[in-house]
Structure formats: structure tokens, C-alpha cells
Design a binder for these strands. Structure first.
Lengths: 155, 155
DNA sequence: CCAAACCTTTTTAGGCTTAAAGCTTCAGGT
DNA sequence: ACCTGAAGCTTTAAGCCTAAAAAGGTTTGG
């Protein structure tokens, strides 16, 4: 099969597959380097960073369920991460007034300070890791990839 | 701090950070969808798919250490994955002649057949998920991201 | 009032991941 | 033959991830 030159299942199928593999490679490399630096220089992990970033944007705190839907991870997942952040004194749980089922996760002052430090380094790291791209190139890719995130179907 | 308008730490730093976030978003979405379909339609996982793909390219088999360096994952990691593939009858370990320490992991006929089916669907999925991009757009992104994978320093 | 339905969170079970430790085997030097 | 270091693989510990079940708390309809 496929010796038939008239087959051509999809135009650009091959190119898209190559694009996917490269996308996977680049994001994997950057992500791996971020994880490595977070661990080596700050003794933390990417999931912890993500949770802290979410909480930093919401100083009043987030319910556990809000946090999990915000981060697009499972409900039971954030339990463990917040547990460990709490053990390290970076986060805490506070009761929700009027609903004894719910709890708000919130950064401690120590956690806010730690995140500010992390965020500063994070931006620098990204700028270094993607430094081979000019702003114009970055904008180009940004625009093209934007088509995938916004599945505009309204023709 | 940063009220000083002469600061400007990096030109394009903001754009690169946005690019990274979009890259993360797109690859995360595609990857999550692949995992979901692998699970729902084939009762398997992405790591298993990756191992099977590696073994499919090497019909004579791969040593465990070759497999782990090929996939860029830790040595102890593939042990468990090959274990589970073996339990399902998709892979097997064969002794390496002349070195009783080493073992070759290899796909069984059942495993080869299963992978052929997976690979066919995989290509279709990718083509669908990235279908919003024209071949020209895909080529553009491919070229730009190529600069990151090939850190050409020879000027 | 109270039981069923619903909501919020934690717990459980299973898989993936790494780093580090342990076991066996190999290869080379004495 | 013996020792030693390195190689190959597995095991273990800790964290992350999900889906599903369990445990409390709340709300609502009779």
C-alpha cells in the first residue's frame, strides 16, 4: 500500500507531524531546563511554582477547587502540592466563612517573598533560553500558534 | 523599582515570555489530547507509546540503557514501562549474547501490530490537532523553532 | 424534621519521573 | 587467581499526575 502516487492522504500531513515533533522538542527542552534550575537554584519544582504563581495573582486566596480548575489539574492533585507548600511555610489554608466544607489556599508573607524571587529569575531564564529568537520572529510564531489556541470556527 | 523609564532590562523580553507561555499552552493542549485519546481509544499511555515507537524502529531490539538514552529518560524509568509492556504481551526481554548483564527489549509480534495501529491513528490526530495551520505556516514555525534546537554558535 | 441530592475536599490506587543505592557482571591489572 | 573499578539493570524513596471512591458539610423537597 501507498505505492499508489495518487494517494496523498493529507496535504501537509508530513509537515504538521514534523512541526509537532519540533514543538515537543523545544518546549520539552525549555521545560526541562526550567525544572533543573528551579531545583538546583531554588530547591523547588515546576508544579509548586505554578501553584505559587496562581496564588500570587489572587492575594485573597483561592479555594482548592478554584485552584485546581485554574491550573487545569485534577482536584486531588493540588491537595498534595499545597500540603508540601504548607509544610515549608510558604502557603496556608484558611477556613471559608459560611461554608465549613471549603478552604482557601493562600501564600504566606514568606511565600509571597519567595515567589517574587522566583518570578524574577524565571523571566530572566526564559529570556535567555529563547534569546536566539528576535522579537520579530517571536511575534511571528506567537501569531501562528495563536490560531491553535483560538479555535475560531465562525466563518 | 521599575518606575524608572530608562530601565528596559531586555528588548523583547516581554515578547519572549509571551511566546513561551503560548508554546507551553499549545504543546500542553496537544499532548493532553494525545494522552486522552491514547487512554480512551487504545487503553495505553504516552510513555508506553514512546517506548513502543523506539522499539518499532529497532526490530532487532534495544538494550535497556540504549532505550533510556534514546528516549532521554532515566535508566530506572524504562524498567517499569518495559515491565508493564511485557505484562501485556507487547514486549519481551531477551538475553544479550556475551554479556549477561544486559538485556534487549523487543516488541512481540502482537506489540508490532499494536504499534502499527497506534502510529496510524497518531498521525491522523496530529494532522487534525494542527489542522488550523497551513503547510506554509507550519514551515515558518518549524524554521524559527529550529534556531532553538540547533544552537549554532559557529559564526 | 429528615433523607436525598449536591458540593468540597481528601484519600486511594495506579502509573510516570528522577536520583540514589544495591546487585550482578565484566574487564583489566597485579 | 584475586582485587578493583566500571557497566548494566533493578529497586527504592519522594514527588507529581489522574480518576474514582470516600468522607464531611450543605441544601432542599417532602
Amino acid at each position: 500500500m501507498s505505492l499508489d502516487p495518487t494517494h496523498q492522504p493529507e496535504p501537509g500531513s508530513k509537515t504538521r507531524l514534523r512541526l509537532w515533533l519540533r514543538l515537543l522538542k523545544v518546549s520539552g527542552q525549555v521545560e526541562a531546563e526550567l525544572r533543573r534550575r528551579l531545583r538546583a537554584e531554588h530547591d523547588t519544582t515546576l508544579p509548586r511554582f505554578d501553584v505559587m504563581a496562581a496564588l500570587a495573582r489572587h492575594p485573597q486566596g483561592l479555594k482548592m477547587s478554584e485552584l485546581s480548575s485554574y491550573l487545569r489539574v485534577s482536584n486531588g492533585n493540588v491537595t498534595g502540592i499545597v500540603d508540601r507548600l504548607t509544610e515549608d511555610g510558604l502557603a496556608l489554608r484558611v477556613a471559608v466563612k459560611g461554608d465549613r466544607r471549603a478552604q482557601m489556599a493562600r501564600l504566606t508573607p514568606k511565600g509571597q517573598q519567595a515567589f517574587a524571587d522566583l518570578a524574577k529569575h524565571h523571566e530572566t531564564w526564559i529570556d535567555n533560553l529563547l534569546g536566539a529568537l528576535s522579537p520579530a520572529e517571536a511575534d511571528t510564531v506567537l501569531a501562528v500558534l495563536g490560531k491553535l489556541s483560538e479555535p475560531e470556527g465562525k466563518t
